[in-house]
Deep mutational scan, measured.
Amino acid sequence: MASQGTKRSYEQMETDGERQNATEIRASVGKMIDGIGRFYIQMCTELKLSDYEGRLIQNSLTIERMVLSAFDERRNKYLEEHPSAGKDPKKTGGPIYKRVDRKWMRELVLYDKEEIRRIWRQANNGDDATAGLTHMMIWHSNLNDTTYQRTRALVRTGMDPRMCSLMQGSTLPRRSGAAGAAVKGVGTMVMELIRMIKRGINDRNFWRGENGRKTRSAYERMCNILKGKFQTAAQRAMMDQVRESRNPGNAEIEDLIFLARSALILRGSVAHKSCLPACVYGPAVASGYDFEKEGYSLVGIDPFKLLQNSQVYSLIRPNENPAHKSQLVWMACNSAAFEDLRVLSFIRGTKVSPRGKLSTRGVQIASNENMDAMESSTLELRSRYWAIRTRSGGNTNQQRASAGQISVQPAFSVQRNLPFDKPTIMAAFTGNTEGRTSDMRAEIIRMMEGAKPEEMSFQGRGVFELSDERAANPIVPSFDMSNEGSYFFGDNAEEYDN
């Protein structure tokens, strides 16, 4: 993207840094990872977990959730003011799984939030270390993106479920800051804005008074975040219109849905970061690795190297396929839920299948599930090659597409044709070009129609051997075009429920 120079890199967003050079960025990201790792080690000690239990991804998720809940100030305040039966607002906890007599047992633990905050700050040299908290939120978000298709949420806001490739980060909490905003897809931002506008339509006082002023500035800020994701002048001009509207209503909703559809071809720039579970960072720190000293990046080879040398386990339900569970977590670790499966298959070195073909449910185990038949197995999170994460949407291309997802959002900077089903997408653009945004709409449609099938995206960008740390010898991959490109292809993934 041309304006790259004016933006802070995501590592800076990730670490609240002012302008830093590459070495400083690597050190501050490393410091953040160190903090998460030290916190995780301490929690495993508190909970008396064995090494194996500490490497269980379900335990990692519970521990991450506990610290996120302990620092969720708004919710904590709300819980104190609106006490609900049987919930102690000062405590947080969740299921911890232990191996007892050759069987997995679930144990519900409860801790004072104050105590968890103390352990977290102690692991982070006394700081609140917001960057580390956001990092864990993005890992949870990436896992949700890989596990669930947001059909219901899309339909509720009037969008087409086939636009799911635009929904990265749709389950990120509001408090995820600049680093969170960077990884949100165009569809996620559109959905947040539509929800806001709908509230304004239904509630006369939404934009009024002292609160209304705050609401208005939040609305304009979200519009600017979305505008910054678009790469064409016409899309940005249309966002200006939406932002400046005196009284946002149905016309703005129409414009936003139009823009979301246009992003299936004229893709937005959305950041991709490899955020790993805390149970990967903990053992690495415990083994003596100093992330701050060595430096770390979320968008280069580092996460690949770390996963190459990590042992992570997962509980497996009786009829689940461990290899499929591994694929789910591998995609989440690489922030690749909406990437082209052919690119992923090449990088991973084994075939990556669409969601609907995987015999696996989510990673988390519900409290009512029976533990008797639970097994555990090693997650295979290694890769054959590594590639640089991208934040450009890439230019655009036609490809055989599917009944489910009709476009992709690249996660890796790797040369390819970008699949999208042009006739299906263009069919949504018939007729409606009147109104105050008509010239911009016409211009956007013209650009979409001009998108050429034979153009290559990320020209000359390749993948790298894991021994090639400096990215000196790019390998331009070859793809098996007979395979499906979309992950949520004609899909039956479970729906995400809060």
Results as ranks from 00 to 15, higher is better:
residue 418 L to R: 00
residue 65 R to E: 10
residue 14 E to H: 00
residue 209 G to Y: 13
residue 453 P to D: 13
residue 408 V to M: 15
residue 76 N to P: 00
residue 365 I to D: 03
residue 182 A to Q: 11
residue 268 G to D: 01
residue 473 N to F: 14
residue 249 G to I: 08
residue 198 K to C: 03
residue 458 F to S: 10
residue 468 D to S: 08
residue 348 R to I: 10
residue 178 A to W: 02
residue 288 G to H: 10
residue 33 I to T: 13
residue 252 E to Q: 10
residue 194 I to W: 05
residue 299 V to R: 06
residue 290 D to C: 08
residue 392 S to R: 04
residue 430 T to W: 03
residue 29 V to R: 07
residue 456 M to L: 09
residue 300 G to V: 07
residue 186 V to S: 02
residue 491 D to G: 09
residue 232 T to N: 11
residue 216 R to N: 07
residue 178 A to C: 03
residue 487 Y to R: 02
residue 171 T to S: 05
residue 237 A to Q: 12
residue 166 L to V: 02
residue 33 I to W: 05
residue 187 G to W: 07
residue 292 E to S: 10
residue 121 R to Q: 07
residue 344 L to H: 05
residue 409 Q to D: 00
residue 144 N to P: 05
residue 231 Q to Y: 01
residue 396 T to E: 00
residue 354 P to Y: 12
residue 377 S to P: 02
residue 219 Y to C: 09
residue 43 M to H: 11
residue 100 V to E: 14
residue 252 E to K: 10
residue 300 G to K: 09
residue 231 Q to W: 00
residue 281 Y to A: 12
residue 72 D to E: 12
residue 287 S to C: 11
residue 438 S to I: 00
residue 489 F to T: 12
residue 163 M to H: 02
residue 83 P to Y: 06
residue 497 D to M: 15
residue 142 N to S: 11
residue 463 V to R: 04
residue 234 A to R: 07
residue 366 A to W: 04
residue 32 M to H: 04
residue 280 V to H: 07
residue 315 L to D: 11
residue 349 G to F: 10
residue 20 Q to H: 04
residue 179 A to G: 11
residue 396 T to K: 12
residue 412 F to A: 01
residue 321 N to T: 05
residue 192 E to L: 06
residue 80 E to G: 11
residue 270 V to C: 12
residue 95 P to N: 08
residue 98 K to N: 13
residue 83 P to D: 00
residue 48 K to M: 11
residue 194 I to E: 09
residue 177 G to Q: 07
residue 35 G to E: 07
residue 498 N to P: 00
residue 104 W to L: 05
residue 81 E to T: 06
residue 176 S to D: 04
residue 410 P to I: 00
residue 228 G to P: 11
residue 386 W to D: 02
residue 342 R to S: 13
residue 38 R to H: 13
residue 223 C to V: 11
residue 402 S to N: 01
residue 163 M to P: 00
residue 45 T to H: 07
residue 163 M to F: 15
residue 322 P to N: 11
residue 460 G to F: 01
residue 204 R to Q: 10
residue 449 E to A: 03
residue 364 Q to N: 05
residue 194 I to F: 03
residue 268 G to C: 12
residue 385 Y to P: 14
residue 407 S to W: 04
residue 184 K to D: 02
residue 150 R to Q: 05
residue 347 I to F: 13
residue 337 A to H: 05
residue 444 I to N: 03
residue 432 N to R: 09
residue 425 I to F: 02
residue 118 R to Q: 11
residue 52 Y to C: 06
residue 103 K to A: 14
residue 379 L to K: 01
residue 9 S to Y: 08
residue 62 T to R: 06
residue 411 A to D: 00
residue 428 A to N: 14
residue 221 R to G: 07
residue 123 A to Q: 04
residue 143 L to C: 13
residue 210 E to L: 12
residue 424 T to L: 15
residue 242 V to T: 05
residue 335 S to D: 05
residue 215 T to R: 02
residue 95 P to I: 03
residue 332 A to W: 02
residue 175 R to N: 05
residue 107 E to C: 08
residue 159 M to L: 15
residue 207 W to K: 01
residue 384 R to D: 00
residue 360 T to A: 10
residue 339 E to D: 15
residue 224 N to M: 14
residue 33 I to G: 13
residue 114 E to C: 09
residue 100 V to T: 12
residue 418 L to Y: 00
